[in-house]
């Protein structure tokens, strides 16, 4: 038996050359520079449309504690709200894939809720639950719930039929099939769901704060209040932090995916 490994990892000999770095980072860096220059041009000529980048920077530098406190509140909403939404969405997907009766029972309701704009539910939730954190958790949770549910369900269903046949001939229990086949097999879909859910979670938290700005904390609240006062540097500094939060979440997710799901990337080994 002389056959060798089909796809050995190929060493990337030019990995750290200057040319490589310029090639990889040059184009996106250039895009950012162009956007920044255009931004400055607009801002300098129209001070009531956009604040200059240095004004935004100064605002952040002058009161970092205030921004940090608001960032933490929004983070808390994302972690608790989205965390709960992710767990609930995944668990319901498991229940639906294992018990057809559950799917039959809840699918129509889910379709109805899914087409309801969460933004429209938010004020109603504030009326119901007050200006505390609870309505914000609920809105954030609702926003991530559906992409998680839909993707997890698709993943649990997308089981390798031939592998399932092997499990069945071994008389595997449903639990064994779930534990060893469906659950690990659905993870690429779960991560696809998370990839959609993470940016949405930030949107959800910000929207919840817009409507329930009563607590006056969180970056979304800050945006609303500063905009009402026509304070453009604070408005845009808060927006920038929301953006940063989204980027951070997506990057963390990509990192986690790389560690856990490398096996699902076709090209990962051969490249």
């Amino acid at each position: 038996m002389s056959d060798t490994v089909a796809t050995a990892p190929r060493r990337n000999s030019s990995g750290f050359t200057v040319a490589r770095i310029v090639f990889d980072w040059g184009p996106p860096a250039l895009t950012f520079v162009i956007v920044a220059v255009l931004w400055q041009l607009v801002a300098i000529n129209n001070p009531y449309v956009l604040p200059t980048l240095d004004a935004i920077g100064n605002s952040l530098a002058s009161d970092p504690g205030m921004y940090w406190a608001n960032l933490l509140v929004t983070c808390q909403e994302v972690v608790i709200g989205a965390g709960a939404g992710i767990i609930c969405g995944f668990l319901l997907a498991v229940a639906m894939s294992e018990l057809p009766i559950v799917e039959k029972a809840v699918m129509p309701l889910i379709v109805v809720i899914m087409v309801t704009p969460v933004v429209a539910i938010a004020p109603a939730l504030v009326v119901a639950f007050g200006f505390g954190m609870l309505p914000k958790y609920i809105v954030t949770g609702l926003v991530v719930f559906f992409p998680m549910l839909v993707n997890s369900l698709a993943g649990l269903r997308d089981v390798d039929q031939k592998a399932l046949d092997v499990f069945k001939t071994l008389h595997a229990s449903r639990w064994e099939i779930f534990r060893d086949l469906r659950l690990p097999g659905c993870m690429p879909f779960v991560f696809a769901g998370l990839r959609i859910a993470m940016p949405l979670a930030v949107v959800g938290a910000a929207v919840a704060e817009f409507v329930a700005a009563g607590q006056q904390a969180g970056l979304g609240s800050l945006v609303t209040i500063a905009a009402a006062q026509a304070n453009l540097p604070v408005t845009w500094a808060s927006i920038a932090l929301l953006c940063l939060l989204g980027v951070l979440l997506v990057s963390l997710l990509a990192l986690l995916r790389k560690r856990l799901l490398w096996w699902s990337d076709e090209d990962v080994i051969g490249r």
Partner: peptide, 12 residues
């Protein structure tokens, strides 16, 4: 013991 047409190994 079943050997399907594709290996159907678990990639993880």
């Amino acid at each position: 013991g079943l050997v399907p047409q594709s290996p159907a190994l678990l990639p993880w």
